[in-house]
Design a protein around this nucleic acid. Structure first.
Length: 588
RNA sequence: UACCCCGUGGUGUAACGGUAACACAGCGCCCUUUGGAGGCGUUAUUCUUGGUUCGAAUCCAAGCGGGGUAGCCA
């Protein structure tokens, strides 16, 4: 219900709306330009939702364009994953707004080169023979290259020979001729082309010179008729160069314009591609689509829906302030959607056996259970009830704290959709671990029964032992133990002198695997369905599931106010210093 | 260091010169056959100092703080 349904509004959409009002462009055209050198993450999702959102709201098109101008970094595998992620994210929302996809900057290499020749002819670019180091140094001190004033014909000749492969890597560059004393370093004769004798994932060995980002990106936008080129803040200082290129080439209007917004930062996570790839390569997670990763594929596998991700992107808004968003907002968005849509089922994660001593031995009852109390149309189902059950180990305590409302020795509890039971006997093994409970049933207390309205404090979930279906359940938790793994690592490495990095804050309990007891109707669950295991959380089938064995991922727990209460009780002893070990209970 | 951008409750955002609001998080109560959901209440905000104005979160200046850039990466 907190999901806003009105049109989003932010400073970029305001600009677009104004441009629409004044008729500046025939049609609004945006683009999402990933470099195919890694998987997309939730930060990209923010950008996708913005760019496709604008296209969708203003009747325009958003191109997905691979920014593949560096042959040494890019791979086709990434192109495929990127497209799969984009299509999944916009599916059922902006499917009609995607431009024939995917597009590739590399498809424009010929035109980029023609523009470069044109720029040279206009005396606005030159071939530089300086070394990398010299180029950097001269740029820092604002000194002009000795090759800056070569005649046009010589530049043309050298550029042609660069393209023909006459020179080795790093020996020559094509540079824009702008202003070596510009306060903005990106205007100090930036490099437009560099030599790379390397095979490109699409153009193969056709080229040995490759365009730099600014040249390729600006011209790609122009070629595609992009109107609003929206990127993140780090490109802000490139904007004057973006505009310079369009001006220098004297390209006719309408021209694209660049606007920048702040990238997404989330607590308890790292976002940069560089760090995500480390987690994968160091095997701290099981691949890019590990459900603990905030990659789009990881989130999808975990059970997140595209609509929830979109709602999240909407909720966080678009600004230029470099913010740190609380991961709780993401969690809230997911719970908010799933509470309304997820089908309820009973499952016991950590079973403990219960025998109902006064319940007939061979009797099986089929009890009615509602599929979704939030959705009157979801209907009901039957669940079997019998003498031997499983309940959650956490739902019994021998010596519970004061406010505990679940089962205790001599205490009563309601079995959801069934009877009130009383714990008469606790059976333990030699180690003192509770192995079984003997309980008596109030046989009149069933829904509709004589004492069905009897109030007991607690209601717990259960599964009939004889009918239970075993399934593997993967319980995920936050991947990091500290709110800001990046800053924390910086701080601690300074203090200890050791090279502690973000990886030292990995939550070692971020994955727990259990064998759960599930109610029988869960056996026919499908991968795209979302379930709430009552009182536990939201779960979705993992792609590791087989016809023999189901594997469930816990997408997110239910909110657990008892966990907070329990922690307060533990804190009671004054002065007890408990270095907050990662509070697993909080998210369990 | 230089240049650029940004500063609104704990967090994310809104207010577009005219009563500072919404969501998350927190806290309290009610309700509950999910300690879920829901309902009610509550805590808490315009970085500082000047200026312009009848009136400033909003415009201007300076300071302070934060972020970005200074690859032949994108």
């Amino acid at each position: 219900m907190t999901a806003k349904t009105d049109m989003p509004s932010d400073f970029i959409r305001d600009i677009v709306a104004e441009d629409v009002r004044t008729g500046k462009y025939e049609r609004i055209q945006t683009r999402f330009p990933p470099e195919p050198n890694g998987y997309l993450h939730i930060g990209h999702a923010k950008s996708i939702c913005l760019n496709f959102g604008i296209a969708h709201e203003f009747g325009g098109i958003c191109n997905v364009r691979m920014d593949d101008t560096n042959p040494t970094k890019e791979e086709t595998e990434y192109v495929n994953s990127i497209m799969a992620d984009v299509r999944w994210l916009i599916s059922g929302w902006a499917d009609k707004n995607i431009g024939g996809a995917p597009l590739y900057a590399s498809d424009y290499f010929d035109r980029f080169y023609e523009y470069a020749v044109d720029l040279v002819r206009k005396c606005k670019a030159y071939v530089d023979d300086m070394s990398r180091e010299q180029t950097d140094e001269y740029r820092r001190i604002g000194k002009e290259s000795p090759f800056r004033n070569r005649p046009v014909e010589e530049n043309l000749d050298l550029l042609g020979r660069m393209k023909a492969g006459e020179f080795a890597d790093n020996t020559h560059t094509l540079r824009a001729k702008i202003d070596m004393n510009a306060p903005n370093v990106w205007l100090r004769d930036p490099v437009l082309y560099r030599i790379r004798h390397a095979s490109h994932h699409r153009t193969g060995d056709k080229w040995c010179i490759y365009p730099m980002y600014d040249w390729a990106h600006t011209l790609s936008d122009y070629i595609e008729g992009i109107t609003h080129s929206v990127c993140t803040l780090e490109f802000e200082v490139h904007r004057p160069l973006y505009d310079w290129i369009l001006d220098a080439l004297e390209l006719p209007e309408p021209r694209p314009h660049q606007y920048e917004f702040a990238r997404l930062n989330l607590t308890y996570s790292v976002m940069s591609k560089r760090k995500l790839i480390q987690l994968v390569n160091d095997k701290l997670v099981n691949g890019w689509d590990d459900p603990r990763m905030l990659t789009i594929s990881g989130l999808r596998r975990r059970g997140m829906t595209a609509s929830a991700l979109r709602a999240f992107a909407y909720n966080i808004g678009i600004t230029k302030y470099p913010s740190m968003t609380d991961i709780a907002l993401l969690e809230h968005t997911v719970r908010n959607e799933f509470n309304r849509t997820a089908t309820r089922r009973l499952a016991v994660l950590r079973p403990i056996k219960v025998e109902l001593t006064n319940y007939p031995e061979d009797q099986v009852e089929e009890l009615d259970a509602v599929n979704n109390p939030e959705d009157a149309n979801a209907g009901t189902r039957k669940i079997p009830f019998s003498r031997e059950l499983f309940i959650e180990r956490d739902d019994f305590m021998e010596t519970p704290p004061s406010k505990y409302v679940r089962l205790r020795p001599g205490g009563e509890v309601r079995l959801k959709y069934a009877y009130i039971i009383k714990c008469d006997e606790v059976i333990k093994d030699n180690a003192g671990k509770v192995t079984e409970l003997r309980c008596s049933v109030d046989l009149e207390s069933k829904s509709g029964g004589a004492t069905s309205n009897r109030k007991v404090k607690g209601t717990i979930h259960w599964v009939s032992a004889a009918h239970a279906v075993d399934a593997e359940v993967r319980l995920y938790d936050r991947l990091f133990t500290v709110p800001e793994p990046d800053s924390a690592s910086a701080a601690s490495s300074g203090a200890t002198g050791s090279a502690a990095d973000f990886k030292s804050f990995i939550n070692l309990h971020s994955l727990e695997v259990v064998t759960a007891k599930c109610e029988p109707s869960l056996a026919i669950a499908q991968p795209e369905e979302r379930y709430q295991f009552e009182r536990l959380g939201y779960f979705a089938l993992d792609l590791d599931s087989t016809s023999e064995k189901q594997v469930w991922n816990r997408t997110i727990t239910l909110k657990d106010t008892w966990a907070k209460e329990a922690k307060k009780e533990v804190r009671q002893p004054a002065g007890a210093i408990r270095q907050a070990s990662y509070p697993a209970a909080e998210t369990r």
